[in-house]
Design a protein around this nucleic acid. Structure first.
Length: 429
RNA sequence: GUCCCCAUCAUCUAGCGGCCCAGGAUACCGGGUUUUCAUCCCGGCGACAGGGGUUCAAAUCCCCUUGGGGACGCCA
């Protein structure tokens, strides 16, 4: 039975590198029907904060990475003490200046068998004795990680590359305690655009920042999984796809650069595929937060019409904010119109005629609207091209957008008519 | 400085000795479709870091160089 864990230290927000490590662990657990454990490594009491724990938990929840078991390392102090005392008794550790030190034998090599990287040989001369318990009585990472992984029955340790050099020390502790070892997988890092360590100067590094930028959790998950994992030529994966397809032998050994362009493209792909009603609910708070559309207006809107509008607009959005911005046009609120020349007298006349015709259309749907509009055009010896842009601008505030008649059908007829008349009279909206 | 890891288009990657004078995706540049924009479709640009081996045959295996990253804490 597979048991894996994600073990962040709560000294800051969850960054995308940590999120990817969590994701690989989660996917492996879900793929195999195993157990995914969240373990907060808070033994550094100086730097650990509850705020950081909250941020990490919020981030994982938003990403949809749910855990089956939860631990805080400091709550396991008694168990750590018990294990450390046994090391003291056996002579594997000793006390000096109030701290407890683990004794590393001189000479020989320690070979780490990494399932991803292969065998890595470390000379024991490089491994000096190291502290496992501070003089204030708290324990050090390299020690507790072993005790906890064994107690929790961890079968596969999947973690960042930066821990590879710690592994021989940990192996020594496994041996001294007489514990069986898990399988190790050390993942390559995520780099910034300059191939340096990913940091603030490369833009957003926090998971929550991507949420705030209007990225869908499934899109970030899709993007992160492709940094170091591939399944043939496929690019767009749903969460279910990933759970079904993910295996550890698809993992890559080299570091990857995080670039926004593809994330945005993937976000667009997921925006197009997301369940429409669910997507509208995601957009709802963002639309309301913009200040023009009230919750009441949203509630009063015809649901079918609203979803039809959202469906048209989603194809042109790369983020939820793009969608929220565009969706304002679906409500009876004043529009900000893109700058453009005022309609000509001929266009004005056409739009006024169209306003009357559209109000009379029944049932109100793209086909019937188109028929009514074309009738007006024919009666006035005009073509759609003569008035399409002015009409679109009048009703949606924009020069570009979805098909005109579908768009009109997604907005209440009275609002469409009013906007056409206002625009024809040079009014505000 | 010492130790460790990594190395295919600008970026993410496929490739796990012959199917590769290297395939897909993003980005970029053209064209088509459309009332417009986006989508979509078609096309273009573009890489096996360098040098030695091994082999009938190497992007694929080995070594060196170079480059990048990581670790050397009473941090995790």
């Amino acid at each position: 039975m597979v048991r894996v864990r994600f073990a962040p230290s709560p000294t800051g927000y969850l960054h995308v590198g940590g999120a990817r490590t969590a994701l690989f662990n989660w996917l492996f657990a879900r793929h195999t029907g195993g157990t995914f454990i969240l373990r907060i490594e808070d033994t550094d009491r100086e730097r650990s904060t509850d705020e950081a724990i909250e941020q990490i938990v919020d981030s994982l929840r938003w990403l949809g990475l749910d855990w089956d078991e939860y631990y805080r390392q400091t709550e396991r102090h008694e168990r750590h003490l018990e294990a450390a005392e046994s090391l003291l008794r056996s002579g594997a550790a000793y006390e000096k200046d109030g701290a407890w030190w683990f004794r590393v034998p001189e000479g020989g090599d320690t070979v780490v068998h990494d399932e991803l990287v292969g065998d890595v040989r470390f000379s024991n001369e490089q491994l000096k004795d190291f502290v496992i318990r501070r003089s204030d009585g708290t324990f050090i990472y390299n020690f507790v990680v072993v005790v906890d992984d064994v107690d929790m029955g961890i079968t596969h340790v999947i973690r960042g590359d930066e821990h590879l050099n710690n592994t021989p020390k940990q192996m020594r502790i496994y041996q001294a305690l007489g514990y069986p070892m898990p399988l190790f997988y050390h993942l390559p890092m995520i780099l910034g655009a300059d191939r340096g360590k990913l940091s603030k100067r490369h833009g957003a590094t926090s998971v929550l920042e991507y949420r705030d930028r209007g990225i869908l959790p499934d899109a970030l998950v899709n993007f992160l999984v492709r940094l170091g994992w591939a399944h043939g030529d496929e690019e767009v994966f749903s969460r279910d796809d990933l759970v079904r397809l993910f295996t550890l032998d698809g993992l890559n050994k080299s570091a990857a650069v995080f670039e926004d362009a593809k994330l945005l493209w993937l976000n667009q792909q997921h925006l197009k595929r997301e369940d429409l009603a669910a997507l509208a609910e995601l957009a709802r708070p963002l639309v309301v937060a913009r200040g023009r559309v009230s919750e009441a207006m949203w509630a009063q809107a015809d649901p079918a019409r609203l979803l039809a509008g959202a469906n048209l607009l989603r194809d042109r959005a790369r983020t939820l904010h793009d969608l929220a911005l565009a969706m304002e046009m679906l409500f009876p609120v004043p529009l900000e119109r893109e700058a453009s020349p005022a309609p000509s007298p001929a266009q004005t006349a056409l739009m006024l005629a169209m306003a009357d015709a559209i109000e009379a259309v029944s049932p109100y749907m793209p086909e019937t609207i188109e028929a009514a509009v074309r009738a007006v055009l024919e009666a006035n010896a005009a073509t759609l091209k003569d008035v399409a842009l002015a009409c679109r601008l009048a009703v949606t505030g924009r020069k570009a957008g979805p098909g005109l008649f579908e768009m009109l059908a997604a907005i209440e007829p009275a609002v469409v008519a009013a906007r056409l008349r206002d625009s024809a009279s040079g009014g505000p909206a």
